[in-house]
Simulated scan of single mutants.
Amino acid sequence: MTDTGYSQPTPIQEKAIPVVLQGKDLLACAQTGTGKTAGFAIPLLQLLQADREAGIRNNGIQVLVLTPTRELAIQVEESFRVYGKYLQFSSMTIFGGVSAVPQVQALRKGIDILIATPGRLLDLAAQGEIRLDKLRYFVLDEADRMLDMGFVHDVRKVLKMLPAKRQSLFFSATMPAEIRQLADSILYKPQQVAVAPVSSTAETIDQVIFHVSKEEKRNLLLELLKDKSINPVLIFTRTKYGADKVAKFLKKTGITAAAIHGDKSQGQRQQALGQFKEGKLRVLVATDIAARGIDIDDLAWVINFEIPNVPETYVHRIGRTGRAGASGTAVSFCDQEERAYVKAIEKLTGVRIPVRQIELSATAV
Rank of each mutant, 00 (worst) to 15 (best):
Y314H: 09
R238H: 10
D244H: 07
V76M: 07
R269P: 00
A173W: 03
I235P: 00
K226I: 03
T37H: 06
V285I: 11
R180H: 12
T10I: 14
V365Q: 15
K280S: 03
E338Y: 04
P102L: 15
L64M: 11
E178M: 12
R292N: 04
P311V: 05
Q357V: 03
S172L: 05
L21W: 08
P163D: 12
F305Q: 12
L122S: 04
R282G: 02
F305H: 07
P9E: 15
Q270M: 13
I318W: 05
V315Q: 14
T37Y: 01
V198T: 12
E53I: 04
V365D: 09
A258G: 04
V285E: 01
Y86L: 14
Q46P: 01
T321L: 14
A330N: 10
H261C: 07
A272R: 07
K347W: 09
R218M: 13
F236L: 14
E203N: 10
P197H: 08
T69A: 15
Q270D: 09
S168H: 02
L124N: 07
K189R: 13
N59G: 03
A116M: 08
I353Q: 08
K189Q: 15
F138T: 02
T237F: 14
N309F: 05
F170R: 00
G328R: 02
V139H: 01
S200H: 11
E278Q: 13
L281F: 10
D3E: 15
Y188V: 06
K251H: 04
L348E: 03
R282M: 11
I111M: 06
K157P: 04
L121G: 01
V315P: 06
K245Y: 07
V342S: 04
A164G: 01
Y83Q: 06
A340G: 04
I130R: 12
A143V: 11
D123Q: 14
H261P: 01
V365Y: 07
M92Q: 10
K15D: 10
T313V: 14
E306M: 09
R292D: 03
L224P: 00
V302D: 08
C29L: 13
F276Y: 08
A38H: 06
A164M: 12
K277Q: 13
Q46T: 14
K251Q: 15
Q207I: 07
R108N: 10
N59R: 07
E77Q: 15
G150S: 02
K134E: 11
I115Q: 02
A290R: 00
A30Q: 05
S90I: 02
E215F: 10
Q105T: 05
I294M: 15
A290S: 08
H316A: 14
G33Y: 09
R352C: 03
H211L: 13
I115D: 01
T237P: 10
T2F: 11
Q207W: 10
P11G: 08
S168A: 15
P43C: 12
I42V: 15
I94G: 01
V65G: 00
A362H: 13
R131F: 05
Q270P: 01
Q275H: 08
P197Y: 09
